[in-house]
Every structure is written in structure tokens, then in C-alpha cells.
Amino acid sequence: MKVLVAVKRVIDFNVKVRVKADKTGVETANVKMSMNPFDEIGVEEAIRLKEAGIATEIIAVSLGVAQCQETIRTALAMGADRGILVQSDAELQPLAVAKLLKAIVEKEKPELCILGKQAIDDDCNQTGQMLAALLGWAQGTFASKVKREGDRLLVTREVDGGLETVKLKLPAVVTTDLRLNEPRYASLPNIMKAKKKPIETLTPEQLGVDVAPRLVTLKVEEPPKRQGGRKVASVAELVDKLRNEARVI
């Protein structure tokens, strides 16, 4: 079974994100970029499927600027077999990404697509669901466990009330949650090998996908600074403040 894994280049989780002076977005110049942690979990899961003899080939796909190649290379160093970069300097919103991924799925014919449940930059949590809908495939989102059973995939999902297990018909789309696995370190032999693994570069035009944004960002602002807490002397004072100052009761 061929597995396609989507890997997004995002601002590293350790970086303190700052809003640009003109409020059009966040500062990305001279900022450390890394693979979206949920996508790292996706790559790890694909590799485990391959080690278990279920997956035969892992294709890492990234969409965006030329430097996304580095993100693909990281996936290759972890153990993915080859990469595809859809290069574009345009702002790629979830629907555009889902359409591009659909075009690649039609080209590569994988049986399984693994995506992070969301990217830590925009936290959209949309792409996996959109991709499954566009393809008409089954979907198992927020996966904390993935198991193959015959021609079905058992996916344990982290839902509000606890865990839910769904049985998916393949082909399917799975999005990863935090507890699915712990991604491995890239091994030195794999880092060396990654250099020789092929990365194909495509453009949205070649794939015939219109990536024009459907949403417009008006302004990006820092969240308001948190006010310090206050101590009250008695329950009566607390109730009074909640009623008359905060006006919440």
C-alpha cells in the first residue's frame, strides 16, 4: 500500500511568535522553521506501517515556498522514500491545499493519506477533512491509534467524550493526534541517504489547481495582555465583584 504524508513547514514550536509591524501577519523573516509536529507524527506512523509490512512506499508532500524542500528532506531522513514539492509563493489556504493534495492523489494513487490534524501556525484543522470530502474517501481524524484489519483500517479517535474507534474502508484519509506515536530521531545513515532520495517539484498550474485565496485576512493582532489576578478578602467581596465589576453573575 502506497502512503502519502503531507508535511507543512511552520514556525518552530519553540519560537515566540511576533506580529508584523504592519499587522498583515506574523514575522517569519530570520525565524527558525520546522516540520509541523502533527505532520512529524504522520511521517512516523507511515514509517511504522512500512516497518510492519503494510505500507510499501511513503511519499512526503509539501506545498509552499522553495524552502519547503527542507521539510521534505527531514521526512526523507526519518524514512520516507521520496518527496513531492508543489512550489508556490502564494498564500495557500486549506481548501487550496486540499485541492492540490487531491490532484497529487489522482496522480500517485495512494491508498492512504496521513495528515496532521492541524498545523501549529494557523490551527485551521480543515485540510484532512476537506481532502477526504473532495476525494469521497473515508476519514479518521484525531487518530491516537491506527491498525489495519484486512482491507479495513481501525482508527481510534480522540473525541471530546473519550475515545471512539471507527472502521474505515480503504482508501482513506487519517489525521494524527498528539498521542498517536512519538516521532523518531533521524538516523545518520538515513540523513546521508536522504540526499539521494528524489524530490519532484511541481506547480499548482501543472496540477491544474486554482489556488487563489477564498478568504481575506484583514488584520493580525496580538492577543490582549492578560491582566494580573486580584486577591479578595471574603466570599462576599468575591460575589460582589463578580456581580458588579465583572458582571458575570
Partner: peptide
């Protein structure tokens, strides 16, 4: 290079 960066990232993370 990308390989050198991967070596640095991996060792740093392990450490």
C-alpha cells in the same frame, strides 16, 4: 547544507 542541518537538529534534540 540540508544534511548538515539535519545532523545538527538531530544531535541537538537528542542532547
Amino acid at each position: 547544507s540540508q544534511e548538515q542541518q539535519l545532523v545538527v537538529d538531530t544531535v541537538r534534540r537528542f542532547v
